[in-house]
Design a protein around this nucleic acid. Sequence first.
DNA 1: GTGACACCTGGTAG
DNA 2: ACTACCAGGTGTC
Length: 297
Amino acid sequence: MEEIRLDDHQPFDLELTLCCGQTFRWSKIGDWWYGTVGDKVLKIRQAYGKLEFENASRKMVEEYFGLKDDLQEILRQIAKDQHMQRVVRTVKGLRILRQNPWECLVSYICATYKSIPAISRMLHCLCKKFGEKIFFDGYVFYTFPEAESLAKAGLADLAECGLGYRAKYVLETAKKVYSGELQVESLRLKGFKEARRELLILKGVGLKVADCVLLFSLEKLEAFPVDVWVKRALIRHYASHLDGNFIRKVASKRSPSIREYELLSSFGRNYFGKFAGYAQEYLYHFERQNFKLNLLP
DNA sequence: GTGACACCTGGTAG
DNA sequence: ACTACCAGGTGTC
């Protein structure tokens, strides 16, 4: 077992980071968290100001959990107003993960119009059916399937995992990645706008899905995904920064049009700056938390 | 360039 | 048990 000592000035909350909806495949057994990163099962827990982990290198853990981000400085930069100051005081130690881009892309294609428990189920089923089985600590885990496995799968096989109409999007994307037509990893090297343009070519990938993939796996911390929760947060707390008619309009319907999405998202990017993605995650979590606690109508 | 509307299916509140 | 409704949106007319 190895450990990483956590600095008081660089807050990190493992549980919050894994449970805030950016990733769907971690499970807690006893007081340990288990998840597959690459082809290995990572076992990790947090206690008394340190992280203890097994089966992974220190470098990998730091990389995956975004421990290299200067969170204190990031929070300082995004806390531009009273609301955000309150949010960063309340939500402590949430970090943006650096997930595998391929897995992240498929996960968010699957995530459209689904609840989080349902997304977890779908992905678990995909991994069980098409991934590699790994035994670790007396438990069974599965890796996320390679593009090749999904590309060679039939639509019916994918649909069996409850993907529904998403099955054809996943299959099509898997084929593009397997053939090399799309190199997901290489998008890391491109700028936000260009990487986003390439993702948007894919069927089943709209602005929201693209922004999630950019933020959670492609190192684009300025990406500002706008889902129903973030939309609510913006309407509630940032209406004064936006046009009144526009706010009324987006408030009146469930999902925004492309233009409306872009207005909301670019507001986030411009207002919060190069770490807008962090601002988004904090707003998202705060809004959901308050909803669960019944503090919001 | 916008705006309804359907979409697969599982979870969950009544 | 059974129904109704909604879900981290997107593609299509």
